[in-house]
């Protein structure tokens, strides 16, 4: 087969994927864009409302704050797990791998209710804290931002492990040996060589977690208990409770633009590992 023919065959194989993306994402997205400029009347009024409505603005700010905290927590945790998975003893590797994969088998809903059971005022943690006399009144661990952050971090952490582990696997062992041979103790090798050399994996993981977190719906809806509403939940409320389709659509489009911008900046300047080769 000539190169040209091979190229054409490759295109043919791609067609189903392109069609799927167009049907499942492209067309609905343009539908949403259309609502945002036609509901209830034609124009950009909904986008103007976005920048002025104090509720919408506060939800955007809260969403970014929660996502930032979740990203930091998930990436730090994932770094430690990835380290064990890639560089641990065979036993540590097996345990780490098991712990990374198991969460993927459990639905997001189940996990959110699991956290509810643990964190609620009569949940396991509060009961235990009270029984040892550490606190007299139950702590508010859920139906607030704290609960949302715990649940989201837990859900997103495994996704952060993969790009970090990939960066760690690509690292040439000889560079670490060189650092030790030059007299650096293990902690020094870790902080001055290992961490900087895996930074691209960390950035890749951070991007995945942050973007994923921006659109979270189930976890904040259950663990936030309506008190720490995030963008996705607000979109849902606008569309299905206030029947304010235009604003909901405008929020969706704005969110997508922000995510796209962030991703573009990151790819342009930082070349995160595990996402680009």
């Amino acid at each position: 087969m000539s190169r040209r023919a091979a190229f054409r065959a490759g295109l043919v194989l791609l067609v189903p994927l392109l069609l799927f993306v167009l049907l499942a994402y492209g067309i609905p997205f343009f539908g949403v864009v259309e609502w945002s400029v036609t509901e209830p009347t034609f124009g950009f009024t909904q986008y103007v409302r976005l920048t002025q409505d104090p509720l919408v603005l506060s939800v955007f700010v809260r969403t970014f704050r929660i996502c930032a905290v979740v990203t930091v927590c998930a990436v730090v945790g994932a770094y430690a797990i990835a380290y064990l998975w890639v560089r641990g003893t065979p036993l540590q590797r097996n345990i780490a791998e098991f712990c990374i994969l198991v969460p993927f088998w459990i639905s997001v809903l189940t996990r959110a209710f699991g956290w509810l059971a643990l964190l609620s005022s009569r949940g396991l943690i509060n009961t235990w804290l009270q029984s040892i006399g550490f606190v007299s009144e139950p702590l508010t661990l859920v139906r607030n931002e704290f609960g949302v952050i715990v649940g989201m971090t837990h859900f997103l952490l495994p996704y952060a492990v993969f790009p970090i582990a990939s960066a760690m696997r690509n690292l040439d062992d000889r560079v670490l040996m060189a650092a030790r041979g030059l007299g650096a103790r293990r902690s020094r090798v870790f902080w001055t060589v290992f961490v900087p050399m895996t930074a691209s994996g960390v950035l890749g993981a951070a991007l995945i977690v942050f973007v994923f977190a921006l659109g979270f719906f189930v976890t904040p809806a259950i663990l936030g208990g309506g008190r720490s509403v995030m963008i996705a939940e607000l979109v849902y409320l606008r569309m299905f409770q206030s029947i304010d389709w235009g604003l909901g659509a405008a929020m969706s489009v704005a969110l997508l633009l922000i995510v796209g911008l962030l991703a573009a900046l990151m790819f342009r300047f930082l070349k995160p590992a595990g996402l680009v080769r």
Partner: peptide
Amino acid sequence: FQGYALFPH
């Protein structure tokens, strides 16, 4: 080292 093992960063 073979391949030098310089610190790339």
